[in-house]
């Protein structure tokens, strides 16, 4: 069944055990990379990720579940809100010298 096209949406949450920001992937697993998130492009798909989110919440796997809007770019999905971009890319500052020395930085 074809449903109305909407702005592309993805489902995000934080993992219960460690609080790390995650997105619902195409394979139904939660991933720590927004790039691997499942892109819901029409109402049915949005309803499906919403119900998957509710289920994960009920199963106590994640907390703070939200559907967010993204723009599809060549570099992958880019959230409209700065808040969500920061959730996916990390703090915009050079925050943990010792820790980040070993990790490459997404600009």
């Amino acid at each position: 069944m074809k449903t109305a096209a909407t702005k592309t949406k993805v489902l995000t949450a934080n993992r219960l055990t460690d609080g790390i920001a995650v997105w619902l992937g195409a394979n139904g697993e939660w991933t720590t990379s927004l790039k691997e998130a499942f892109l819901a492009r029409h109402d049915d798909a949005v309803a499906a990720i919403e119900s998957a989110g509710q289920q994960a919440l009920d199963d106590n796997r994640v907390v703070d579940v939200n559907v967010i809007e993204v723009e599809e770019t060549e570099a992958g999905p880019r959230p409209f809100r700065l808040r969500e971009r920061i959730r996916s890319d990390g703090p915009t500052i050079d925050y943990a010298p010792a820790f980040t020395a070993g990790v490459s930085h997404a600009a």
């Binding site: 934080n14 609080g19 790390i20 959730r87």
Partner: peptide, 10 residues
């Protein structure tokens, strides 16, 4: 007990 959930983590 001072535990929050923030953007990236607890």
């Amino acid at each position: 007990n001072g535990v929050y959930l923030q953007l990236h983590a607890y």
